[in-house]
Design a protein around this nucleic acid. Sequence first.
DNA 1: TCGTTTACAGACGTTCATGTATGTTAGGCG
DNA 2: CGCCTAACATACATGAACGTCTGTAAACGA
Lengths: 209, 209
Amino acid sequence: MRRTKAEAEATRRQIICAAERVFFKKGVSNATMEDVAKAAGVTRGAIYWHFANKTALFMELYKSVPLPQEDMVARELESDDADVFAVVERAAAKWLDALASDEQRQRILTILLRCDYSGEFAPVLEKQQHVDDDHKCKLESALARVASKGQLSACWTPRSAASALRWMMKGLCSEWLLHGRRFDLAGEGRENLRRLIESLRGADATRAR
Amino acid sequence: MRRTKAEAEATRRQIICAAERVFFKKGVSNATMEDVAKAAGVTRGAIYWHFANKTALFMELYKSVPLPQEDMVARELESDDADVFAVVERAAAKWLDALASDEQRQRILTILLRCDYSGEFAPVLEKQQHVDDDHKCKLESALARVASKGQLSACWTPRSAASALRWMMKGLCSEWLLHGRRFDLAGEGRENLRRLIESLRGADATRAR
DNA sequence: TCGTTTACAGACGTTCATGTATGTTAGGCG
DNA sequence: CGCCTAACATACATGAACGTCTGTAAACGA
């Protein structure tokens, strides 16, 4: 019953897919390898062949999902003449659309939000921290350029504006994912984003449409 | 070695205190009753005497910490002539101060942020959801009254403003607790809150100090 | 075509945490 | 003052999950 290379790759994908569903349903720490094996229609032996342990499986899921930061710090942000606000709004909206229409991505992000990062998964949290820091820096310096052109409302500093944007995005997604996706993420998310950005813009905020 | 009532109550508190430290360090799911017992200087027998199991211990911790919502939906908010913005800002700032100066509260909230709510702890998450909903409603209706007086900026609706406020608070606290408390929570938190609220206020935002 | 290795299934041994059951001692109460 | 029970400590039984080891049949390379 030796499988061909293609078949092996297929079962590997089955295992990852099953892990995603099981982790989502029972939580990472409560899920057992046996659970994942059953859901994938294989035995634990197969899983241990493809992955070292549960941590490795989790890492695989973590690697497989694009985070909002990757989109939001688009290269365009670095160009000096870009409309930073528009770029950020577009990128965020695009990412929200992608999340809203991809159930798999929803499950994986939910898993990442719910899981316990103490112990074995601590490095993941640390890495996430660095990604966050980096994203914050990029956003902040872009907003600093905006401010130097006098296009940032007097209410805000580059730093606080960057924080507000990031927290808004995170709060939005967290609430949507953890509280049962009870509102229209793409619609309301985009709307709220737009409102915040309007507030960040200078005096022309009130005459914007 | 039968203890007096007072002594028993003391060991009970020791256990809770130890659980807090151990849960914080190893995470709820990775922590064992033996760990907690050692940290408390007792045996597992003592813990099982005072608590049914680890879930009960966790619930005890959950009950013991005041959440920001309780302060933010102060009764003052319901009074019709109150300055809603000022009330919210003061309540939030007060809560941030309390958190920043109380390490125990920090640890407990960190535990609650990190832990895996699938399975046994799911009810906690649900309850949290209802508290959140309730808080959102209260805040929203208060902001609706503000809007009816024309004191809410044209950029915002009551609903989006309430969301923005809540997400800002959550993002602020989450980042501070999960990323190693690397900034001044009370100071920067209050500052950002103030900026957002200034943006929520009407046209007088720019002439505010 | 034949040996080797891959891709698993299944069995095994071990660890480890949990919950309970029992033992023990002293406090509180009549 | 003596009994009962509170407040634990200790010992025990159980089971679940893990990781490994062996078996095996077929794919793949030479």
